[in-house]
Design a protein around this nucleic acid. Structure first.
Lengths: 338, 338
DNA sequence: CTGTTAGCGCCTTCAA
DNA sequence: TTGAAGGCGCTAACAG
């Protein structure tokens, strides 16, 4: 910067002001500075700026996996919003490991990010306290953070699953089973609650299991279930992986969907309407969530205020009715869930 | 740091040395420093370190889209390797816009990243020269960078497609059409070349079109093609999106796969074996690519040497033979491509 | 509108 | 083995 200043015959502050626009610079000097910058091929050192000033114009995001399309979509929205608003994104994956998550958050804090977006790992982490983060804003995302004072962006897990089950009840099903995966995940548990509520409301007997950690276990579980005399006539799955396990298991068991058993899942996926039968699912607004969470975080950063008690933003979901539930329409119907 | 030093009754340098291990610190002082750090809850400021020193322990990565599973997988591998080797990742998306890409790269350079990983947008960018990057190592990824001196990590696009076509020829097909998308993408063009070579080698007439930019255009194109008297008996698609368009179009046109026309695609996807019929595809090693590219970049960074002429690492692909090509095996066969 | 001074937190260099 | 001085590139604060 000094070189530029010298070449332009001004002080470094003039260059600084020209670059940041923090104060007026006369037309003529601006021109000269401009020229000098071009000539020297000068690039301001963002690192020095960040180091000097208070704000860094960067945020950190920690996600369990990037190969999960739902998370990847969220992450895409985050990078997009951040870019539009002039922020740099430090991104890392936790592999659902609390230890990794903790270390990576600490590293980001040490890099003075202005704020942190996190999809917290499911193990209770009493280390992720407000005091750990100091005055750095944090927004939790997809799963709330237990400690008070953290904003959270969530979806309507409970209501979504409830509507899905109600839809199956509407088809006349009396025996509806839930097959699940990762019970200790917040989202999964919330969906389970939705299922339970819907079943209770309909006066039906609940029947749920989380014994399908692997494809073969799912097959055994379903095999046993379907041999039973009063076997379920409909199944809901708590998440994509569970849906796929169930689908594969039913195929191997030669059970026809939806003729012999109806099926519905939570979380839409790209080919849900290309497979046979097209799947009825709850769709989560992944891009909107990423956008909302990032906007909220940037608001907090720019406002400079930490919330007293963390806000909860709950995003609505949609039911995408295709054919696996027993409906016969040829094109999917999208129904908002309230 | 000064506070810590004061509390421990030592100089700041001792603290610094203790933290970085750059010189010996006596057992006793180490203890005292350690305690002081704990007491004050001190965290070293990575930003100041990066600002001061030459190396930053951070890399940047620019990807077109994170919602594309292939890219997301690559990105996952990048974050994993970087984390293991103690690097922070600045990630952003270009949306395939050269302008955005350029600005974001510049921003990363201004943040003094130690190296940059980029999946370059397809428009020729004469601005991305060696001199633009200065002494910052760059590894291009999935698509090579035209300028000399950039390392590139690619897959066997040409050979992969060639084998795929040869496989169809092996099924006895004489009329094999290629349907493509994004012809100006390096990867797509390379695959086209593979198709052409295979067809020439087999003495067959080439028939390829890139008129399927949208689903409806694909349908029109295929509709016309299939009405023809000597219509193709097999189709290859250049990428996932093209495959899906073709699949949907064929379904709407009521053409049975593989009975009436065989189909094979480039790039595997999660549900390729759940759809009807299960798709025969070329599988790209996305995670391995991400790993290889990151390792190469970190090598360059730690070696501190820029390559004279960019190396090309070409990763092998696999052919996953399922049923859409006309094979009848019930479980997919994975065949390495040489 | 413009320049001067000082200091952000760390580490390289030199001296003890 | 330890400490003191100085400066990385930038900008807030205060003059002019």
């Amino acid at each position: 910067m000094e070189d530029v200043a010298r070449l332009a015959g001004v002080g470094t502050m003039t260059v600084s002001r020209y670059l940041s626009g923090s104060a007026k610079v006369s037309e003529r000097t601006a021109q000269r500075v401009q020229t000098a910058i071009k000539q020297l091929n000068y690039r301001p050192n963002e690192l020095a700026r960040a180091f000097r000033g208070q704000r860094n114009r960067s945020i950190g995001i920690i996600i369990p996996y990037l190969y999960d399309p739902f998370f990847a979509n969220c992450a895409h929205a985050v990078t997009t919003v951040a870019r539009e608003r002039g922020y740099t994104v430090l991104m890392t994956t936790s592999d659902e490991e609390p230890e990794t998550e903790f270390r990576e958050i600490e590293l980001m804090l040490q890099r003075n990010v202005d704020g942190i977006l996190v999809i917290p790992t499911y193990r209770r982490e009493n280390r992720l306290t407000r005091s750990f983060f100091g005055r750095t804003p944090v927004v939790a995302f997809d799963r709330p953070m237990s400690e008070l004072g953290f904003d959270s962006v969530l979806v309507q897990n409970t209501t979504g699953m409830r509507r899905l089950v109600e839809h199956l009840v509407g088809h006349g099903h009396k025996r509806i089973a839930l097959l699940g995966l990762y019970r200790n995940l917040y989202t999964i548990n919330a969906r389970l609650q939705g299922y339970r509520r819907a079943m209770q409301d309909a006066g039906l007997r609940e029947e749920y299991t989380f014994d399908c950690e692997t494809e073969s276990e799912a097959q055994r579980t379903l095999g046993a279930m379907m041999q039973h005399e009063d076997r379920p006539t409909a199944i809901v799955a708590t998440n994509n992986l569970a849906t796929h396990y169930v689908l594969n298991a039913l195929m191997k068991l030669n059970v026809k969907v939806p003729e012999e058993v109806a099926l519905a899942g939570f979380d839409d996926f790209e080919l849900a309407d290309r497979i046979q039968p097209p799947l009825t699912v709850i769709r989560q607004p992944s891009l909107e969530m990423g956008r909302a969470a990032t906007n909220l975080l940037l608001e907090r950063i720019e406002q400079g205020e930490l919330p007293e008690t963390g806000n909860r933003i709950v995003m609505p979901v949609e039911m995408v009715v295709r054919q696996s539930c027993g409906c016969t329409g040829t094109s999917p119907q999208v129904i908002p869930v309230h």
